[in-house]
Computed example of a mutant assay.
Amino acid sequence: MKKLSYIILGFIIGALATYYFCPRQIDDGIDVIKIVKPKGVITPDQAKTLNNNWTTYRKAAADSAASRQGRKVDNRSTWWSLDDIQNYIAFAKHESDSLGYNMTGIRVYLGVYGENAGQDKKDYTTMFMVPTAKKGTDRASMNPFTFQEDEEDCPECSPLNDGGTGYPPGAPYPN
């Protein structure tokens, strides 16, 4: 009987020690979000270099094409609000799921508005996003090695366009 009381006392001491010394997540109604730096994040200096390279190697050709359409310069950027991007990702994920696809990412394309786009957009370059996806559902696997396949555009999903131009066409990257 004496040994049983020692066991019970040990459980009580262990429970108290666990309660006081083990960290607990405080639930104050705020969702804790883990921030992960995505692959491909570059420095502002690298972005300026990429932009300067575009100016050096592509601006003349783009502006030449724009001049044939009656404009001095072409658009060189597209802007979407954070809300629009977050809403689009949620929308695209839901749409791809409902169509039987697993959304794997987003691809950004260059496009050109046609003659019927109105005077504000006529013949300007634009960018639009298309969800990439795989057909079917995820399957569990015990294989620890995964090989990334080429991601394909979701052929039935709705792309996102109508972003703003951001900086005026032809303006240099801001310092």
Rank of each mutant, 00 (worst) to 15 (best):
S141I: 00
R68I: 01
D83W: 14
T125K: 11
G14H: 08
W79L: 12
K72R: 08
V73L: 11
A66Q: 07
Y57D: 07
N116H: 10
S141Y: 01
T49E: 14
P131D: 01
V73P: 00
T56F: 06
V130L: 02
L99P: 03
S77V: 03
M127N: 08
K122T: 02
I12F: 14
Q25V: 13
T18E: 03
G111H: 03
R76E: 09
A17W: 13
Y113Q: 04
D45Q: 14
S64M: 03
T49N: 09
R58H: 13
Q69S: 12
A17Y: 13
L82S: 09
N52D: 13
K135H: 07
K37L: 06
D31F: 09
T56M: 11
T126H: 08
T137V: 09
V41T: 11
R76A: 04
G100N: 05
D84M: 14
K72S: 05
P144H: 01
D74N: 15
N75T: 14
G29N: 09
A65M: 08
G100A: 03
K135S: 10
A15T: 09
N75V: 08
T125G: 04
A17M: 12
I85K: 04
Y88V: 08
Y101T: 04
S77P: 05
I42W: 10
A66G: 06
N87W: 07
S141R: 00
N87L: 11
Y109R: 15
E115L: 06
E115R: 10
A117P: 02
L50P: 02
M142Y: 02
N87R: 06
Y88A: 07
H94P: 01
Q119D: 14
G14T: 08
K135R: 11
D74T: 05
L82K: 12
K72V: 00
R139S: 06
G70Q: 04
N116R: 11
T132I: 05
R71V: 00
H94S: 12
A92G: 08
A117I: 02
D83I: 11
D123M: 12
F128R: 08
V41N: 06
Y124T: 11
R107W: 02
L110Q: 10
T132Q: 12
D28G: 14
I13T: 13
D123L: 04
L16P: 04
Q25S: 09
A65K: 07
R76Q: 10
K134S: 06
D45K: 15
D123V: 00
P144E: 00
Y20K: 15
N52R: 15
S98T: 09
I106M: 11
N143R: 00
Y19R: 15
I26P: 01
D97Y: 10
G40Q: 12
W80Y: 14
K135A: 14
Q86I: 09
D83N: 13
E95K: 06
D45V: 06
A66L: 07
Y88N: 03
E115Y: 10
V41M: 12
K72Y: 00
T78H: 06
I85E: 02
W54D: 09
I13G: 10
T55Q: 14
Q25N: 10
P144I: 00
G136C: 03
K134N: 04
N52S: 15
A62Y: 08
K48F: 02
S98W: 10
Q119W: 03
P38Y: 00
D28S: 12
V130I: 07
K135T: 04
D83S: 13
A140V: 00
P44E: 03
Y57F: 13
S77H: 05
